[in-house]
């Protein structure tokens, strides 16, 4: 049924949209139980700028990949219309206990799933209503769209890197990215794609008495800073292929959260963009490096 009579779908923007729960905690939304005095403003202002940038843009759904739904048996997709539960971060339960209710674009999920299956990827729909959506998805979902008024497609992070290597992970994620792109175009829908991950990912192993004490916040090492800046330079100058080329080194040396495949997948959904990404913000969270970047695909349509 797709095709002739329907208009082509499109990706209006692709974003790197990291998910440390500290950002939600610092904002004190009604859904989150803990109460904060603020903190991590640089990144939260970055998210504000990202939302601002997309405020006039019309789209139907958000497609999101989070490294905290970790699957070892292929890639999974949330496959029921709604999920409602309490998300408690197992690592930072003191900061993140969020009551969520989110809608899934099951049709689009199924289309991406089917397309990925056609190209030979191992995929599965997740249809257990008791399933608790991971805190990465919830955090990025909230920071990107606090109204939760757009349906989501939520894709798990296949841990092929843990089994094989960053190279194999990247090959699979580039395949998944292509399948995602093609399915979106075939769906006739307008979509934003989000990769939910940090850059350098070396944490502090201690936490200050007040987690939002910003006098304690900095990158864990000079080497991590240099890697983050190098990646940001590539983002800003449209050198996506270089990012993919250096991904194995970056992921190993910066212990980067791109190991979950989100960034490679994102760049692939955007067909490896050679135009500059917009840096909306950068900051550290318990020492990890986080950038909020938008590739405004809507402004760079093929002729």
């Amino acid at each position: 049924m797709l095709g002739a009579t329907m208009s082509k779908g499109e990706i209006v923007a692709g974003c790197l949209a990291p998910h440390p729960p500290h950002l939600v905690y610092a904002e004190n939304p009604p859904q989150n139980e803990p109460v904060a005095e603020g903190g991590w403003e640089q990144l939260r202002w970055g998210y504000e700028r990202l939302r601002e940038s997309l405020s006039g843009v019309d789209y139907d759904a958000i497609v999101l990949l989070s490294p905290h739904w970790q699957t070892y048996v292929g890639t999974h997709f949330l496959g029921l219309p709604t999920f409602k539960n309490l998300s408690v971060d197992p690592v930072f339960p003191n900061l993140f206990r969020y009551h969520y209710e989110l809608d899934i674009d099951v049709e689009l999920s199924q289309q991406i799933h089917d397309h990925a299956a056609e190209v030979g990827l191992s995929v599965k729909m997740m249809k257990n209503p008791d399933f608790r959506v991971d805190y990465g998805t919830i955090t990025t979902g909230h920071m990107f769209n606090p109204e939760w008024d757009k349906p989501l497609v939520v894709i798990s992070s296949n841990r092929s890197r843990d089994y094989y290597s960053v190279e194999v992970m990247q090959e699979m994620m580039i395949e998944l990215g292509k399948a995602t792109r093609e399915a979106i175009i075939a769906s006739g829908k307008k979509v934003v794609v989000l990769a939910s991950n940090s850059l350098s990912h070396r944490h502090f192993t201690t936490e200050s008495a007040i987690p939002e004490d910003m006098s304690k916040e900095h990158i864990t090492s000079h080497a991590m800073h240099l890697w983050d800046m190098r990646m940001i330079e590539y983002f800003r100058s449209g050198q996506s292929q270089r990012i993919l080329d250096e991904m194995p080194e970056f992921t190993e040396q910066a212990i980067a959260e791109s190991d979950g495949g989100g960034l490679s997948w994102l760049l692939s959904t955007l067909d490896i963009p050679n135009y500059p990404g917009i840096l909306h913000g950068y900051g550290t969270i318990i020492g990890t490096g986080n950038a909020i970047v938008e590739w405004p695909e809507r402004l760079h349509k093929e002729a």
Partner: peptide
Amino acid sequence: WVMVDHDFHELGS
């Protein structure tokens, strides 16, 4: 609570 495995969710809760 109710636990559902990240990978083997189809086995049940």
